[in-house]
Nucleic acid binder design. Structure first.
Length: 184
DNA sequence: GCCAACGTTGGC
DNA sequence: GCCAACGTTGGC
């Protein structure tokens, strides 16, 4: 029983599974499958029900925090690793040793205006944020309480401005590619 | 156990 | 499209 909720950030390519997809899911809940990185997996295993999660859209224009989700089920085996047809099939995973795990996330809110990464850079209290570190590729990462609060403040602060930079509905210049962190 | 080669991520 | 940073693989 965690005394306090913890905070996290997950990345997803919106072409693959956006926060709008999450909103359209049954009970606005999904299982966060497809994580195939040990560090990211270990962070998922540390999640507790009630923890809150920044939902980040990566590899799009602009990359942005799109909203907040909440953990509704703690880590359990990721069955997609066992499925040879799945994009994230891992031949090393077995039913007895599934290796990979996932959690269930439920939508909490979609920001009226996504907070682009450019708006996060330069904010002093976010200087240590994992997301902003060069070369950071972790698709699941911890967020400090003050960082979480700051991002929410930014989201509520700048509706007009950020809506001008909201992701376009136009086709991505990139082909839809399968994301290591996410398969749906 | 080292480390070069390789594939991937993801901002720009 | 570019390329830096990172994780993984595999030869030795």
């Amino acid at each position: 029983m965690a005394a306090k909720p913890q905070y996290w950030l997950v990345k997803s390519e919106p072409d693959c599974f956006s926060i709008q997809h999450l909103a359209a899911s049954p009970k606005q809940t999904t299982f966060w499958s497809g994580v195939r990185n040990y560090q990211a997996r270990n962070f998922m295993k540390a999640m507790h029900v009630g923890d809150r999660v920044l939902y980040y859209h990566s590899s799009c224009d602009p990359p942005a925090v799109a909203g907040v989700a909440v953990v509704v089920k703690e880590a359990y085996p990721d069955h997609t690793a066992l499925d040879p047809q799945d994009d994230h099939y891992d031949p090393k995973a077995t039913k007895d040793k599934p290796i990979w795990e996932m959690v269930d996330l439920k939508l909490e809110r979609i920001f009226d205006a996504p907070v682009p990464i450019g708006a996060l850079r330069g904010v002093k209290s976010l200087a240590a944020m994992e997301l902003l570190k060069t070369g950071s590729r972790l698709s699941v990462q911890p967020v400090r309480p003050n960082e979480f609060a700051t991002v929410l403040e930014l989201a509520d602060l700048q509706p007009a401005e950020a809506s001008a930079t909201a992701p376009k509905k136009t086709a991505s210049k990139k082909p839809v590619k399968k994301k290591a962190a996410r398969a749906k």
